[in-house]
């Protein structure tokens, strides 16, 4: 019994100490390093318009639906999608009837919006939901299928749009990891002239 109390004493003291070191000092050390070296990233890569309004984060998608915008992937985060306090996906299994129906509906909408022929293959990312529901990216193939619509709505030349897409396209790391993807939120903000410059 005496051994038990001595063990308990060590456990309590050590736990208290580790809460301070690991729960307090460690995150603080990372916090100060972040402020010093990567202040933009440390604060969530927040993007502001020239007038100072907070547009969002360069890392999180938003639900652009108008025909004059590039559209992000379907999202299951929150009621309206892209709710950044309710990240998550649909969690539908591969044999789920709900999944097949939802994809079929999205595919039909996608064809109609972008005036695609019925035998045009749709990039899989355009009609499937991401895991986070906050995926800011779409595949390059998806963006290029949407491009004629955006060009028409905005009365812009396709080359001009292609240039903007290229600016917000990330290439695979070392040519191996990840895929070439377009950051939709950044492109749409740029199109609205919210990012200054253009």
């Amino acid at each position: 019994m005496k051994e038990f109390w001595s063990r308990l004493r060590v456990a309590l003291l050590l736990t208290a100490l580790l809460v301070v070191v690991l729960g307090g000092l460690y995150p603080l050390a990372v916090y100060w390093t972040g402020r010093l070296l990567f202040p933009f990233q440390a604060n969530g890569s927040l993007v502001r318009a020239p007038d100072g309004t907070l547009l969002g984060s360069a890392l999180l998608g938003q639900n652009f639906r108008g025909p004059q915008y590039f559209h992000p992937r379907p999202s299951a985060a929150g009621e309206a999608g892209y709710d950044a306090t309710a990240s998550g996906g649909r969690n539908l299994g591969p044999t789920s009837k709900k999944l097949v129906d939802a994809v079929a509906r999205s595919a039909a909408d996608y064809r109609k919006e972008n005036l695609l022929s019925p035998d045009q293959k749709i990039p899989a990312d355009a009609v499937t939901a991401s895991a986070s529901g906050l995926d800011p990216h779409i595949s390059l193939a998806n963006a290029l299928l949407q491009l004629p619509r955006v060009a028409r709505e905005r009365k812009m030349r396709p080359e001009e749009l292609r240039e903007i897409l290229a600016r917000y396209t990330s290439k695979p790391w070392l040519g191996l990891l990840g895929e070439p993807v377009v950051n939709v939120a950044m492109v749409d903000w740029a199109l609205d002239g919210k990012l200054g410059g253009r």
Binding site: G89, V103, K121, I122, A124, T128, A141
Partner: peptide, 29 residues
């Protein structure tokens, strides 16, 4: 290989099964 049930709906199969995956990682990652 992608999900054959979805490929039937006119999806391209080259990207693999994308439901529940992030675009920046793709299928392999």
């Amino acid at each position: 290989g992608g999900n054959p049930l979805l490929v039937e709906q006119g999806l391209s199969s080259v990207e693999g099964n994308r439901e529940g995956k992030e675009a920046r990682f793709g299928t392999l990652d």
